[in-house]
Simulated assay, not measured.
Amino acid sequence: MLKVDNLVAGYGRTRILHGVNLHVPKGGLVALLGGNGTGKSTTLKAIVGLVKPEEGQVLLDGQPIDAIPAEKRAAMGLSMVPQGKEVFAAMSVEENLLMGAYHRRKDRAGIAADLESVYGRFKRLRERRKVNAGMLSGGERQMLSIGRSLMARPTMLLLDEPSAALAPRIVEEIAEAILGLRELGLTLLLVEQNVGMALDIADYIYVIRGGRIAYERTVGDGIAMEELQEFYLGGKDHE
């Protein structure tokens, strides 16, 4: 579904990614782990078209998409839930959700059906649909951010640290919601610092360090937490 091939990218003269390679199979749930400043968010931004690669390419369903603008990548089914639970604070929950379907705004019947589906998946959003998004809790804003992305009818969803700064109970709810998205047939790439959450829900993990993939493994394939932490914290090199 998604292939990132030897991706080199950064900001201005500062290079962040130094040849990143990763693959997300159709219907899979892949996690990209790493600490602050390792290149996780830059990888996602390059995939969706917010950062222009210096070298390498991104392929979606086998098609190179590097020359396609970000807004057109969204119309192709590529959607991102940004870091920081970003919402339109002065707009209601429902208005935020409808913004996710802006590119298909003429499809009123489809939008109404999708809105009902999001409310069925996140019942607290239904309860608070008329409340300004700025009044929501952190967990509710994260649900809203995910719901807004679903309104775009993506085939692939990228999630940038959805568990950040949330209480453990809410992290469990978000993890369950992410697992539930697979029922929709979505392909998922999850960027996380929460190793435990990633191991609980992902099929395959990559660890990025210094803008390079330092470790990769199928989840359940003999992964020891101690071994993973060594790669995560920089104690080992790629095998």
Rank of each mutant, 00 (worst) to 15 (best):
L2T: 00
V4A: 00
D5E: 15
G10N: 05
G10I: 09
G12N: 00
R13Y: 11
T14Q: 11
R15N: 08
R15Q: 15
G19E: 03
V24K: 09
G27N: 06
G34W: 03
N36I: 09
G39A: 08
T43V: 05
I47V: 14
V48E: 08
L50A: 14
L50E: 08
Q57R: 15
D61W: 12
D61I: 08
I68Y: 10
R73H: 03
A75V: 10
G77E: 02
M80F: 11
V81R: 11
V81Y: 12
P82C: 07
Q83G: 13
V87W: 08
V87D: 02
M91I: 10
S92F: 11
E95R: 14
N96D: 07
R104E: 06
A109E: 14
G110A: 04
A112W: 11
D114E: 13
L115E: 01
E116S: 05
E116N: 07
S117N: 06
G120Y: 12
K123S: 08
L125R: 00
R129D: 03
K130M: 12
G134K: 06
G138E: 00
E140I: 04
L144P: 00
L144N: 01
S149P: 01
L150Y: 10
A152H: 07
R153Q: 10
M156Q: 05
D160H: 12
P162S: 10
S163N: 08
A167M: 06
A167Y: 12
I170E: 00
E173H: 10
G180C: 04
E183C: 01
L188S: 06
Q193R: 09
V195D: 01
G196H: 10
G196E: 10
M197L: 15
M197V: 14
R209F: 12
R209N: 10
G210W: 12
G211K: 08
A214Y: 01
T218D: 07
G222Q: 06
A224L: 14
Q229F: 15
E230H: 11
F231T: 11
F231R: 11
Y232R: 03
G234I: 09
G234W: 10
G235Y: 13
G235S: 12
D237G: 10
